[in-house]
Lab assay of single mutants.
Amino acid sequence: HITLTNLITEETTHVVMKTDAEFVCERTLKYFLGIAGGKWVVSYFWVTQSIKERKMLNEHDFEVRGDVVNGRNHQGPKRARESQDRKIFRGLEICCYGPFTNMPTDQLEWMVQLCGASVVKELSSFTLGTGVHPIVVVQPDAWTEDNGFHAIGQMCEAPVVTREWVLDSVALYQCQELDTYLIPQIPHSHY
């Protein structure tokens, strides 16, 4: 019994991606959610070859190996599938703050939850000092008015990073160091 759908849910078992011959794909929301959820992320060749051979072929032979941004053979989907007991964002409290493009905020929040993070909706909701690490995620190029994202640091004691930190961490299924993704914050004294 196979159901085809464009939506990823808890029940989804396989995410089928358009890939090149070496099982490398573009980074899409579907790709990120498939990895975050520990699903099989496979090339569409799995479907076409299975139909051709009239049997369901082994997914291992068709698993996506990499993507056009993070590298052609990083094995993120395999790492995620085999590490669902070791979520990459466990112990983190993440607030997805401000506008985002090409990806609804609720989907970004679901993605970080699938990776083990707790989501907070407001900067004031962080449970500071409880052994949980707060992180604010923003997408600077989605902000149309002044660079308000440079002043988020005044509203909460949390590192502010770009959305790329989430996307790179999920694609590779390895929590990336914050340093290269940090957004400089204007210190309090400048006000």
Rank of each mutant, 00 (worst) to 15 (best):
H1S: 07
I2H: 11
T3P: 12
T3C: 14
T9E: 13
E10A: 10
E10P: 07
E11Q: 11
K18A: 13
T19H: 00
F23C: 07
F32R: 00
L33R: 05
L33S: 02
A36Y: 01
G38F: 08
G38S: 05
K39D: 01
K39S: 09
V41E: 02
S43V: 00
S43Y: 05
Q49V: 09
R54L: 12
M56K: 05
M56V: 06
E59L: 05
V64T: 03
R65S: 13
N70A: 08
G71H: 03
N73S: 06
H74C: 07
Q75C: 15
A80P: 01
E82G: 14
E82M: 10
Q84V: 14
I88A: 06
R90I: 00
R90H: 12
G91H: 10
E93W: 11
I94R: 01
C95T: 09
Y97C: 02
G98W: 04
P99L: 11
N102Q: 15
P104H: 15
M111R: 03
Q113P: 01
L114R: 07
L114E: 08
C115I: 15
C115A: 12
G116E: 13
A117E: 00
K121P: 05
E122L: 11
L123I: 10
T127S: 15
L128R: 05
G129W: 14
T130A: 12
T130S: 15
T130K: 07
T130P: 15
V136T: 11
V136Q: 04
P140L: 14
P140T: 02
W143C: 07
W143M: 05
W143R: 06
W143G: 05
G148C: 07
I152L: 15
G153P: 11
M155K: 02
P159S: 12
V160M: 07
V161S: 06
R163L: 05
R163G: 04
W165R: 01
W165T: 03
S169I: 02
V170F: 03
Q176L: 14
L178R: 09
Y181E: 03
L182G: 13
L182H: 11
I183L: 13
I183V: 15
P184Q: 15
Q185T: 07
Q185E: 03
P187H: 15
P187W: 12
H190M: 12
Y191I: 13
Y191A: 13
